[in-house]
Design a protein around this nucleic acid. Structure first.
Lengths: 344, 344
DNA sequence: TGTTAGCACTCGATGAGGGAGAGTGCTATT
DNA sequence: AATAGCACTCTCCCTCATCGAGTGCTAACA
């Protein structure tokens, strides 16, 4: 694409992001001095429209960026915005909380993100399949119930109640516990399977006491499937965006946010690299075609642990948001990794 | 109040609840045959307005109920609506879930309530100050960290990480644990105070090891202050209500729902009895004057354990909602109490 | 005395008409 | 290739008239 055309596209998108109103040739010529007249810009705009980067809501209005236009902008034109010191401070502040109680910690991260970006924040807890098992504890609750408590190196604590088919004595339980602890602690969690547990307790008597069903439950607790918890914050922010003054759009967005599996799909967008931008139809969920997302992964000791993201209108301030998410994800990685090390 | 005036008020409120539009004298006369002409009804309406039970949005419109009108309706006129068998089934269905994982259980209750009522549901977890302590477990995490796991008779499981000022050996820990267990298990949780813990571990050596700060943390975990978790569900339902087509109203409602302490205040409305209806300004939180709430308490073995509620427009279907909340609260009480017994 | 019919009046909602203004596309000019 | 000029097309907004629902009042009626 020729340089000037890029500049025009850039100007249109920047202006539209700032003002949420169609941008005319005159405005481009005035505010972003490209050294040419509105007429020239009109010609460029005409070309850009033909190529699908911008569109016209109606004949006598200015142009607005299309999804393709935003995509080009994000890929080639967007400039990252440095965070102000105040913003950086806010990020660090949120990270200072006790990382111990992972849930509270992530929740406050979520709030911080929504406040900083002014969009809706989505935060996924660290996947528990990552890291190693630090400790396992079996607590008898009653004759037929057992509480399994797990600690992982990623700082996660999980518990689950397990129904037992038979009574089990204190001694037996202690035996099982120490055996499990010996065999499982220090192991990578994802390598712990039903078969492993089964073999571990292959001893006939123990097998019978614990039963296949209970073993399965324990494995579930261990495996990552169990707790894919996702927090949301700052949905209120959306109400200030002019594009969501339409109640129907709001509805489709809110109903999405109330469904956990859809949320998971959303954050799944950042499959590959560190940070992904999904624009309009690129979002892997139906019904929010007018939205964009910025999703970043965070890492614990080099391994992907979870994702954080924001959801906003396609008229998202990509430059600012991407910078923020990069910084936040990296700080988050640091904070959790540090905690991880401290535990060892 | 004279019988006919009651009937007129009743008709107006019923109609307004159904249609969300000002009700005229003609409509009352036609749909709810009181055997009198519109003119007579107009006179009654004029009286009702003078007494403050209804108001007129503008001169040439029908009447809408005022907060005072709704209050009179709820106190004197409202008829409970029997739940259909399908609705009852839905309630029981939600209760069938594993009561073990209290959090998941309450969350699904929350969804059920919002789906059934078509309003926004608020559900508070059982207060953990209630009931007795069933079991306590201290799990060493690292040299200087300790995981405290608690089980209560109300089926709640709580854990908290505690920083220790000094290393503590396995044996010492086991000693502390068994001592705590001996002294605390079976006790009512609200009777467990910092002083008690302090005395319990009065032994000089142990004191030093565990430190005041850690004790405080343990007490916090035990006391009810810690986990007043409140779930919300079905906020989307509000978007369908015509009164919330106004974005500003939506905003004030949503921002409220995102603040936990405000939510707590809301559910606190049901201070006394089984079920409370708060209309408009009666709601104990600013900023949602156009809303009403129905809050019910649920009980575990006769003691108040928590609250459930719905939030909707003042034009709430009180009859239907009150019946539903009564049934749900009583089923919930049963379900949790049953679980409680099973644990003993 | 309570009820009703009739009627004038009020006021929001609806829709048509008519600038004003913004922005475009085309054409002729530099 | 870039620009200035110009006619044209929209939307937006204001005004105005009409319509109709609903009231309040008064007078008649049982």
């Amino acid at each position: 694409m020729e340089e000037r055309k890029k500049q025009v596209l850039n100007a249109i998108i920047k202006d539209y992001i700032a003002n949420a109103e169609p941008v005319g040739s005159r405005a481009v010529a005035k505010k972003y001095d490209l050294g040419v007249s509105p007429a020239t810009i009109r010609n460029e705009m005409s070309d850009l429209e033909e190529e699908g980067y911008i569109e016209q809501p109606h004949t006598s209005a200015g142009r607005i960026p299309s999804a393709k236009g935003y995509r080009y902008f994000v890929d080639h034109l967007m400039q990252r915005e440095r965070l102000t010191t105040a913003q950086l401070k806010a990020v660090r502040q949120a990270m200072r909380g006790r990382v111990d109680e992972m849930e509270d910690f992530m929740r406050s991260c979520c709030n911080m993100i929504s406040q900083l970006t002014h969009y809706t924040a989505l935060v996924a807890m660290p996947e528990q399949g990552r890291g190693t098992l630090e400790n396992i504890q079996l607590v008898p609750v009653s004759d037929h119930q057992l509480l399994v408590v797990l600690l992982t190196s990623t700082g996660l604590i999980r518990h689950k109640l397990v129904d037992l088919p038979q009574e089990i004595s204190w001694d037996e339980l202690a035996g099982i516990e120490s055996r499990m602890r010996r065999q499982l602690c220090g192991r990578e969690i994802k390598t712990i399977t039903y078969e492993l547990l089964h073999d571990l307790l292959a001893d006939y008597q123990l097998q019978e006491k614990i039963s296949a069903q209970a073993l399965e439950l324990i494995e579930q607790t261990l495996s990552q499937e169990a707790g894919h918890k996702i927090f949301t914050g700052g949905v209120t922010n959306m109400l200030s965006q002019p594009e969501f003054h339409d109640i129907d759009k709001l509805k489709s967005m809110f109903s999405l946010i109330e469904e956990d599996d859809k949320l998971e799909k959303l954050l799944g967008a950042a499959a590959g690299g560190q940070l992904t931008v999904a624009i309009g139809g690129e979002i892997p969920v139906e019904g929010i075609e007018d939205c964009s997302m910025v999703v970043a992964n965070y890492f614990v000791n080099g391994e992907k642990a979870g994702s954080i993201g924001v959801l906003g209108p396609t008229r998202l301030n990509y430059g600012r948001t991407v910078s923020m998410m990069e910084v936040i994800a990296s700080e988050l990685s640091k904070a959790i990794s540090a905690k991880d090390d401290k535990n060892k």
